[in-house]
Amino acid sequence: MSRVGHAIFAVGLALSWTNSALHVLLADRPVYAGSPRMFRGPLPRGRLWSVLGASGGFAGLIVLFLSGLAPEWVALGVLMALMAIRRVEIAQWHDDVVVRLGKYVPAGACLSGWLVADVALIASGVPVADARRLAWNAGCGVMAGAYVLAAITKVRTSGLSWVRAERQALLIAERAFWGPPLVRGLRLAIARSRSWSTLAGLFGLGVELAALAFVVPEARVPVAAAVIALHLGFMALLGYFEIEWLVVLVALLFLGRS
């Protein structure tokens, strides 16, 4: 089993937790805007100590995850913890807004895939060490499935018109009002170009569909490169730095090599 992959995946889990914990901790401040001002001013003591205490517990789980002790039970604990903090985050907002606007947990989804496959393989008689190693392929499958689902949902909801220049251009132009001046300029330039806007849409949808190839071990490196390029595009054009996705993806390159 890849120790490097394990360590990188642990970072992905920690990022997932940190993301939710920050949203819980700074619940009364604009976090999505990304301004350092969100850290200004005192925090309610009760909330601060609750989040710090829970984060300490999660850090303990990460240490256990890295130690390799009883990995199935530790994975279950990690998943329960991620589920719990997600519930807290959801409860802080009215209706189902956190879920509706995309609260994704790729590290948790891939770890769930690993856990289910691992238990199934052990139950079917595969030696425990082999099951634990092979089950990371299920994590890769879940990662592939997540991107394909994003593509399926777009095509089901909007058809292929999703990639049309005016749709993409509007999405990008809306984000030309914040960020460094250079990035704002880039967003406006792309929004004004029909060919670049169409290319952005086609590339996005194409990579999400092609991510199915992540199930094939030999294809994982090129797929990961394309997905990383996609996320860099998200960051530049839409302003989303979704580092958890990238870290988990790279971890799976190591873990799924067996």
Binding site: L79, G102, V105, A109, L111, A150, W162, R167, L171
Partner: peptide, 20 residues
């Protein structure tokens, strides 16, 4: 969208817009 599942529908339904 029930953890760990999701339809990943972010931005999927924004194509009917003529304005942002």
């Amino acid at each position: 969208d029930r953890f760990p599942f999701s339809r990943y529908c972010m931005y999927a339904d924004l194509t009917t817009r003529s304005e942002g």
